[in-house]
Design a protein around this nucleic acid. Structure first.
Lengths: 141, 141
DNA sequence: GTTCTTGCAAAATATTTGCAAGACG
DNA sequence: CGTCTTGCAAATATTTTGCAAGAAC
């Protein structure tokens, strides 16, 4: 699926982000991924790019609800949010599956997460599930 | 609750770890905590201590099933495992509650986590839940 | 004495900050 | 012009590795 530059710009604007060249490139790259990626992956996705700018772009994206950060235990990864996420409402209540073999991190947004009960006194705001195991590709090898 | 040095030694031995002075100190410190701690917390818990030795101690503890690492999104923390954990069977399937206000990370081992269903092809080995919100102490302030 | 552990130095990696130049309205 | 973004340099933080001295059995 090819997404036009205009579409990407519109999407950024809808999340109140000024659509600069760099931001469009990063968003385009992220949209092409089927898994969560780390900084080096994104860096390698372009010819030239400054690490610092990437960090800042990703921070902006995270704050505005474009992406969410995943702490995999072996480094931080980034993945696109649900389109309904925004600066005010940033919910990524879904399963992140980490393959213990190929180390891929995949957002399983379609998996239903049951409500969890927490002790009284605690106020739950959001939660995510980190699942580890062997992914579909690795288990057939 | 005060735990004798002998008890700590016995516990380390039962997990196949040679009980050195440093390891006993670290284990004792961890047992005194009601929340997950980071490297600096542990470092500050003793008078003298070398960061590298701590890293190695924690790595050993993690491999042998004494502690588990928690990636909180703002740094790594460590907490004691269930006593049934060992090098071979290392399951920390429970809720980690991160207070968005005081930033404390607490293991809610008593909370029941329902089974989750993952797509066919994926082999689930273990999972953990990261819950964020306001902890009991902060919500009464 | 052999093996494992520790401490120090240094390297490698990850992330943040300050600042000046450039882009854009 | 004023504001926001970018790129570079540098600072800071985090984690790992190599190696030699020391402790334990």
């Amino acid at each position: 699926m090819i997404i036009s530059k205009l579409q990407l710009e519109t999407e950024l604007l809808s999340k109140h982000i000024k659509p600069t060249a760099m931001r469009i490139l990063v968003l385009e790259f992220l949209k092409a991924q089927s898994q969560a990626v780390n900084l080096s992956d994104i860096e390698g996705g372009f010819g030239q790019s400054d690490r610092v700018t990437l960090y800042r772009t990703l921070k902006t994206f995270e704050q505005k609800g474009v992406i969410h950060k995943i702490s995999t235990g072996t480094g931080v990864k980034y993945a696109l949010c649900d389109s309904r996420c925004s600066e005010d409402s940033h919910r990524d209540t879904h399963v992140h599956f980490i393959c213990n073999q190929c180390k891929k991190t995949i957002c399983l947004t379609q998996v239903h997460i049951p409500e969890i009960e927490i002790p009284s006194g605690f106020q739950l705001q959001e939660y995510e599930v980190l699942a580890r195991g062997i992914c579909g590709v690795c288990s057939t090898k």
